[in-house]
Structure formats: C-alpha cells, structure tokens
Simulated scan of single mutants.
Amino acid sequence: MKIKWDEDGKRKFHAGVSHGVVYPKADGEGYENGAGWNGLTGVTESPSGAEPTDLWADNMKYARLISGEDYSFTIEAYMYPEEFEPCDGLSTPVKGVRVGQQKRKGFGFSWQTKVGTDEDPDKGYIIHVVWNATAKPAEKTHETMNDSPDAETFSWECDTVPVNIAALKPSAVAEFDSTELTAKQMKAVEDLLYGTESAEATLPSPDELLAAVKAAV
C-alpha cells in the first residue's frame, strides 16, 4: 500500500506533565509506598551512551562496537513531597528541622504525559516509570521579591542504574501508552502505581508490571 502523509487523526503530538509520584527505596528490598508530587512543572529525559567504536583490520572497517546506554533525567517543580527529602540528602532529627548533606536515598519515579492528535488533543496519555534513581545535589536560588513576583523553582538532576527484565536487556525506564493498551490494562498499571481504596501505591519491578499488563488482556 502506498504511503500517505498527514492523514486526519494520525498527526500525533506529546504535551504536558502531570501525576508525578515518588517511591523512596525501602531499607531492605523494594520501595516504600508512593507519594504524589504536587507542583511538578517538567521532566527532561537525557539518555546517553550507545556510542559507536569502529574496529579496523586489513586496511578496512572490520566491525562496529556500540557502548552501553545510560539514562538520566531532570525533575523541575515548584515544590516536592516530604517523602522526597531523604532522596535529596535531607534528614529531619526534629519535626520542622532539616539537616542537609546526608546520605541520599535512592528512589523510583513515575509521571504522565498527554498524547494528542489533530482531531483530539486528549487522545490518551503515557505513564513513564523509572527505577533505581539517585538525585544529585542541586543549586537553589533565593531572590528578593519585586514588582513582578514569581515562585521559586527546584530542579534535580538524576542518574539511574538499570534493573533486570526477563528476556530483555536491563533497563531503568519504561512507558505504558494508553493509545495502544486497553483501558483494563492501563487500570492494572495505575492500580499498582497509584494505589486503590484498599491498597497502597507501590512501585513493582518491571517484570511485575509487565505481568499485570499481560494478565489484564
């Protein structure tokens, strides 16, 4: 069939960021219960690596090796949940007192972006999930109030370590797209990540999330 461009309803775009959730790492295995992240203004994904190294032999290019990939991201927000403080190197020895430069706890993170089309700007959404993240120390700027006041913003650069996934290479990030998965499959993912009336929000392993999606078919 001949290729067609710009057909109605097929011109997609991504926009927005919402529904942020942080999952601090538990002292043992796994993660603590998730906490909603209010005031989330941006998430910038910064994958790196996969750089080629050419091998030469017999006066010609013999092969090409590809380096491993790394995944990092930046969170921007007007504020952060209290549960994120240990991940930012803050300790609270007494309520209302925060001491910095402490051990930084690892965490998991999830957020949503919208998927729209030329016909429907609310066509669907994507849930992004990250495992094994660590936040770097971040610069904080405090400025005087003036005749054009604005709220302070926070920003954290975060690195990750991949986790094992059955039958796939280890990875620290996955996406769940509502325009391709059924409503039942998306609900299975959301019930785990966001919790229900009878269950707390958790961050399962990639294999557990994939199993939930397959079981909900």
Rank of each mutant, 00 (worst) to 15 (best):
M60T: 15
L40F: 01
V130L: 13
V213K: 13
D70H: 11
S155D: 04
G28F: 07
A166L: 08
D191Q: 03
Q102I: 09
K140H: 02
E139N: 13
G34D: 12
S18W: 14
E7Q: 05
V43H: 03
A167V: 15
K61T: 10
V161I: 08
G49Q: 14
P93T: 08
P47T: 07
D147F: 09
K187P: 06
I66L: 15
E76M: 06
T134E: 02
A199W: 07
D27M: 12
N164W: 11
H14D: 13
T202H: 01
E197R: 08
E119I: 12
A212Y: 00
G16C: 09
K10A: 01
T153Y: 14
E85R: 02
Q112G: 15
S205E: 12
E208P: 08
H14Y: 11
T144S: 05
H19Y: 08
P170R: 04
V21I: 12
Q102V: 10
K114N: 09
M145E: 10
M145K: 10
T117P: 06
G49Y: 15
Y194R: 00
A188N: 07
E7V: 06
G106E: 05
A77F: 09
D58G: 11
K103Q: 12
E197V: 06
V189P: 15
I165N: 00
G195L: 00
S110M: 06
E29H: 04
A183C: 06
E69C: 12
W56Y: 10
A57F: 08
K214R: 03
N132Q: 06
D147V: 15
R11Q: 13
K12D: 10
E45Y: 09
T179W: 05
Y80C: 01
T144I: 05
Y62S: 02
N146M: 13
P162Q: 10
V173D: 03
V173P: 10
S171Y: 11
E180N: 11
E85M: 14
F109Y: 14
D177S: 12
A212Q: 01
A211D: 14
